[in-house]
Design a protein around this nucleic acid. Structure first.
Lengths: 137, 137
DNA sequence: TCGCTAATGATAACTTATTATCAATAAAGG
DNA sequence: CCTTTATTGATAATAAGTTATCATTAGCGA
């Protein structure tokens, strides 16, 4: 990166403030809220640049295309809501002593991916619709 | 399925006896050991049929294409060796009470994916090469 | 403000995995 | 052994996500 463009700022800003990993389409939508002309080509280009420069990281879930989040979050897992399809960060830790492992295998790292309903997709009372999402995507 | 072909038998046999999830290319290689003319088109077709019929299931890992295993294994996780890229089943359980979850989120299911070195890829002594794989793929 | 050129936007091209096509082959019943 | 037709093998086509191309736009130093 050599120039500080509105597009780049909008993209990194969207990812930084989202509080959860964003898909390329979510990044596009959030970025266009700031720079309406933002194109998907610039999103892909900038996501690659920001990754190379160490600002963001791809989040890979089974059978899905990459989402992106900032690199400053430390060790955590991910929760995918089966209703709204958003992915959330989970910072609660799993006790290492409870990690299963086959005999004679050395575990170097692991991923834990939770699936279920996020707080916005759990109806509060019978017959009530889920409340509006906290996030703009 | 209406006819009991050598190709179908070779494919289901390979998956049944592998003891771990196989990629489409691994299924092709194992099947060709029995039916040399076996084509990748037949592998894809048969994997789809066997899945529909409930004999096998796709195993999805982040950023990778599907592997397949028989449906009779019960709940388990997967271990991917970072050296030989094979995926192994892990039948040891994780204690449910230790599952992290964000407040007000309902966890319906979860995946645990371990990464590290399998027993065949851990050198037994200094300077010794890893022993031959237990499996033919 | 000017000028250089990196960055952008629109879209074509590409990639990799998977599916469709169709003539040739081979199960399985008679 | 025949006949029927489901299945196969070879390959073209497809799909979705990502990357390349290139004329235009716009940072930013002078």
């Amino acid at each position: 990166m050599e120039r500080n463009t509105r597009q780049r700022n909008a993209i990194l800003g969207a990812i930084s403030s989202a509080g959860r990993p964003l898909s390329t389409q979510e990044v596009l939508a959030a970025g266009q809220a700031v720079v309406p002309s933002l194109s998907i080509a610039t999103v892909y280009r900038t996501l690659k640049d920001l990754t190379t420069e160490g600002w963001i990281l791809p989040v890979k879930l089974p059978g899905e295309s990459d989402r992106y989040e900032v690199t400053t979050l430390g060790e955590h897992y991910h929760f995918k809501c089966s209703s709204c399809s958003k992915v959330f960060d989970v910072h609660e830790r799993i006790k290492n002593s409870n990690l299963p492992a086959p005999p004679n295998f050395v575990v170097e790292k692991y991923d834990l991916i939770l699936y279920g309903r996020c707080s916005n997709c759990i109806p509060k009372r019978k017959g009530q619709k889920p409340s509006a999402a906290k996030y703009p995507f």
